[in-house]
């Protein structure tokens, strides 16, 4: 952010550490645990989403600038729509349906 420009970039260091931790966590889950494959995949996907958000918020200036809050709102709304369409369709069309395919 603007006021931090001259000081030490704590935010970026924090983001950097966080993304390394998340990456290592993903590696550890994949190689050093005995979880079933499906669980591992789910966990990695969740971690990937966290990673993407860290990138957007801490490095990609999503909330900065004149229209930052609008960019953020639109991205959150987009994610909301994506989740509703994908998760909603799966629920309506197969899991929550009376006759399973």
């Amino acid at each position: 952010m603007a006021q931090n420009e001259k000081g030490f970039p704590w935010k970026h260091v924090f983001g950097f550490l966080l993304s390394i931790i998340l990456t290592l966590l993903a590696v550890w889950i994949t190689f050093s645990t005995d979880l079933p494959t499906n669980t591992i995949i789910t966990l990695i996907v969740v971690l990937a989403f966290c990673q993407a958000f860290i990138q957007l918020l801490l490095f990609m200036h999503m909330k900065e600038g004149e229209s930052g809050s609008w960019q953020a709102t639109m991205i959150y709304y987009g994610i909301y729509i994506a989740i509703v369409i994908v998760a909603g369709s799966i629920w309506v069309m197969s899991l929550g349906h009376q006759h399973h395919y």
Partner: peptide, 16 residues
């Protein structure tokens, strides 16, 4: 969040 109300009778389960 409401689109299924156009096809309640399509055979979705009670929770949906």
């Amino acid at each position: 969040l409401v689109w299924v109300h156009h096809f309640f009778t399509m055979g979705s389960g009670a929770p949906v």
